[in-house]
Design a protein around this nucleic acid. Structure first.
Lengths: 189, 189
DNA sequence: TGCATATGAGACAAGAATGTCTCACACGAC
DNA sequence: GTCGTGTGAGACATTCTTGTCTCATATGCA
């Protein structure tokens, strides 16, 4: 019967479709989500009890991908600067989903956010702190702010690409270039 | 009878209250908006035909404050770097409202966004372009991206301050410091 | 072929938010 | 005092979304 396998595959496909749709239209209906996934609303409800459950599943997916990206980026290897570059590269695939979840968290106050985000925040902030302690990064910008700025730049870049204001191929360089180097021109690159 | 005067005062007060509330809870109800403004839902409906009208009025207010900030910042005076610093300072008061409108624009696709934003985008992008042409800013980051990044950093900083992750007093330095200088430590500040 | 399971389509009620309406009341002007 | 105007409170219908339900159908396995 291959219960778990079939279920898992469908579930993942639905989640991907939902993420792609909600990234563009955060207020999409359950009916629209179902149509986007190519299934009926009834089936969508059978897999996710309700809209909340769907969003929470997306959140879990986002956290999972984030932590996978954090692992793959090997934040403790090499210089902090190199680690940041790797991290942005690893997170690029999930940028749309993360942008959606980022605003979703701002949108609905309270309810206490998922502990997973706190774990991720800690790891990213630790990377920036490591860069400060090694002398790579300036110390007048707190790790918390650099972490927040990374999220914000990723979301902005994701939207800008979606709306065609910037080119998708520049995604990585735009974020890393600005986050690390800033807009000012320097003598020695 | 002082028609216009009284109406204008109330209208402005309602808009300010709505902006303050919607900044924290973007999905607030018309009833909540009315309560926040200290008026009844009926009166709110008399001033703004509906939720759309309210949001569009807030958008007009945001555009107005943005353009006022652009004027006050005298973008053509002095170095581009100084102009950016002045601009961020002038926009700080409106940061919450602008963060709300920024996400609102991402949230509801299509419907064609207000032309005012295009005018503002042009002016901000022109500032970054001026900085590039004068040799102050690096040229591998497009003015369009720098503009988008400014919005994203302002929104991120606004949320981070609201949620207490960073201090409000650091707002200006966080944005300007990162946008212009980036995270990397430099030999000559 | 026969059976089980998952799905799609649609009906249905419940809830929330909106927009419109009426009515009573307070306030200021005359 | 009286009138006109704006306001608050609340009722009401409407709309949209959601969540649950039933039933017919297709797909896969024995």
């Amino acid at each position: 019967m291959q219960y778990s396998c079939l279920m898992a595959v469908d579930r993942d496909h639905v989640l991907r479709s939902a993420a792609a749709l909600l990234t563009r239209k955060a207020t999409a209906t359950m009916d629209e989500v179902a149509k986007a996934a190519g299934i009926s609303r009834a089936t969508l409800h059978r897999q996710f009890a309700g809209r909340d459950a769907l969003v929470r599943a997306l959140e879990a997916l986002g956290i999972e991908e984030c932590e996978a990206a954090l692992d793959a980026a090997r934040l403790d290897d090499g210089t902090a600067q190199e680690a940041v570059r790797r991290l942005v590269g690893e997170l690029e695939r999930s940028a749309g989903l993360l942008a959606f979840l980022y605003t979703e968290n701002q949108l609905f106050e309270g309810d206490g956010q998922h502990e997973g985000w706190a774990r991720i925040d800690v790891r990213v902030a630790a990377l920036f702190r490591r860069g400060q302690e090694s002398g790579e990064f300036r110390i007048d910008l707190s790790p918390a702010w650099l972490t927040e700025a990374l999220y914000g730049l990723m979301a902005s870049a994701s939207w800008a690409v979606t709306e065609g204001r910037v080119a998708a191929k520049d995604y990585h360089h735009m974020i890393v270039g600005l986050l690390l180097g800033g807009a000012l021109r320097r003598e020695e690159p």
